[in-house]
Design a protein around this nucleic acid. Structure first.
Lengths: 345, 345
DNA sequence: TTCCAGTGGGAAAGCGCATTCCCGTTGCAA
DNA sequence: TTGCAACGGGAATGCGCTTTCCCACTGGAA
């Protein structure tokens, strides 16, 4: 037995298709109460569930909002996803999910799929990349988005505009002040840390990573400090872990305390995890700060200094929620960058 | 400009609608190569994107798979979501997301919405509840699922069957051996811990929580130990935190070392976080174990003893992936339940 | 040369619904 | 009583696509 249709309901209620439609699916014209009641009864009896596909086709608006993330299990993205989901709920829409591992060509596929489903809007989270290998993917993605927008779609991008996207109509980016915040973090750290700084960054060409590196260096410079050395690695925990392993010897053999800035929280955690078995303690032997202020990581010890980002709000904004406050962010200095009282003997 | 349609493509290519459809959207009948090429060119020129809604309507199969979770930002759910997403990708489908905070009545809404969109299958994650206030919600949810299945839908439930669901056709539950694993955990803990045990559980009536409590008690009994006291609180970090606060005094004033079993990892983290500022150290003053083995929490220190659950596989299984191994799980004893060498002076 | 199976393109009938007209009713002013 | 506007229900059209059915055409066997 296939799901019952509107015309079955109409027939059972003894009314026309039009009337049944008007009663059941919020039209501007309201049929008389007695007849409406009859229709509702019939619908109930048949267990009628309107076919959203057909509705979408008829009124060309799907009530769908597409979300593109690198990895839904990454707490950064899942926090954003929660915001998008909330906004969707308020707008009475549903969210369609796509994960891409960050490859622009996959993102292009996802956008095409969303466009095919006639999603009312699309949210793209995850860092934009200008790496050479993503060149073509970026171009295709931009073209796809362009077409989508021209056809009346709305797209919200987190952080940076999609590389090469020319559209302005229906296209908006939720700016995340990565650079300013990183500069602020550097300034605050420079106030209490005398030694050298080191940045553990993602691959060159990842906008988010690059912005944070640039901001941090600027903050350092403004504080009259020399630029920090930059180590490039993966933009995730594994990357941080590797970098930490490579760093352990160096920290142990040096007398100077290093202040490490990992460009995101999970990388910072990775670094710390790699350092610990080597006997390098935070903040005793080195200090470390991250970025994002991931909720799940707040109970981590030593508490991670970081930059708070209102990820949920970011998601909401990208999903077009009008009454969400603009993105602000704030430096959070915690235990991982505290200079122990008895340090530096 | 609205998106171009198949008939525009057909006209431009000088062929019929039927032929264009056969060329572009994988039909069993393959038109001649020269004509196919013409159609493809036309489609490309017009930037044709097939309307999935219309396709779904015409062949009554949407390529959608609905996922119901309590909270997508909860790492437990986002791990499952990743599995579902992967399975969907393999099956060439997209996933529709709904979050419900765990209320059966919301879940019912979500299922109805999925049914309206004619999702090919629905995955429900998150603990079933038999609490009194959920009675009606459960009944409605069961009815909705029942109808959905009768109409040919497939549903996969994680953990326990939906309360009151009578359908068997198209309905399958991914069994999670919570009870056995909890019993195993109790057995292993009892082998090294001599003192009392305490369980911090979720609200009574939450199947997952109840199963784990029951299993743990059974394991204890099998090891010849007295039953553990059970404290009920929220099934999340906040609940654990509260319980931890309530417990601190007691632990400090007692000479006996307590072994705490929090029924999931985030609760365990909450407990630990509440205990720490009170000067209660794990595992020195008490030991603690969780359940789930949440990935993001693995770098937590002291490393949390827990029970590993293949969450991603669970998601994949629920989404109907045939070649995913069955759910197994394993006890992971780590630092948080180690008895320090110099303990118990 | 005739006949028939086989091939491949096109016309048309929906899929389930929203919506635009159209028309029969009703109520009220003239 | 007549006329007209306002109201409310119904028939019909179309959203963009798949798929069945039909038909014109081909080539090879008889």
């Amino acid at each position: 037995m296939a799901a019952s249709t509107l015309s079955e309901v109409a027939r059972l209620a003894g009314v026309s298709l039009a009337t049944a439609s008007r009663v059941l699916n919020g039209s501007s014209r309201k049929p008389a109460e007695d007849i409406a009641e009859r229709v509702r009864e019939a619908a109930d009896k048949l267990g009628y569930v309107p076919n959203a596909q057909a509705q979408a086709l008829a009124k060309s608006s799907s009530g769908l909002i597409g979300l593109v993330v690198h990895d839904i299990a990454d707490p950064y993205f899942s926090a954003i996803a929660r915001g998008v989901q909330e906004a969707a709920r308020q707008q009475n829409r549903m969210v369609l999910l796509a994960t891409t591992s960050g490859a622009p060509s996959d993102e292009k596929e996802a956008v095409a799929a969303f466009a095919a489903r006639r999603a009312d809007s699309i949210v793209i989270a995850g860092s934009r990349s200008v790496r050479a290998e993503d060149k073509q993917g970026n171009t295709e993605l931009a073209a796809e988005l362009d077409r989508y927008c021209r056809n009346g779609g709305h797209v919200g991008v987190v952080g940076h505009p999609v590389v090469g996207a020319s559209t302005t109509e229906g296209y908006h980016v939720v700016k995340v002040p990565n650079e300013e915040l990183a500069a602020g973090l550097a300034a605050e750290l420079a106030a209490t840390h005398d030694g050298a700084f080191l940045i553990i960054a993602g691959p060159e060409g990842l906008y988010t990573s690059d912005d944070r590196v640039r901001g941090f260096q600027r903050g350092l410079a403004d504080a009259g400090r020399p630029a920090a050395e930059v180590i490039r690695t993966g933009f995730n925990r594994a990357g941080g872990y590797e970098a930490g392993q490579a760093l352990a010897e160096r920290i142990k053999s040096s007398t100077e305390r290093l202040c490490i800035f990992a460009v995101n929280d999970v990388m910072a955690i990775g670094v710390t995890a790699a350092l610990r078995p080597e006997g390098v303690w935070i903040p005793r032997d080195a200090t470390i700060a991250g970025f994002d202020d991931i909720e799940t990581l707040r109970d981590f010890r030593p508490a991670l200094s970081t930059v708070h980002l209102p990820l949920e709000d970011i998601g909401r904004l990208a999903a077009g929620d009008p009454d969400t406050p603009p993105v602000s962010g704030a430096v959070k200095l915690r235990r991982s960058t505290e200079t122990p009282v008895e340090s530096q003997v």
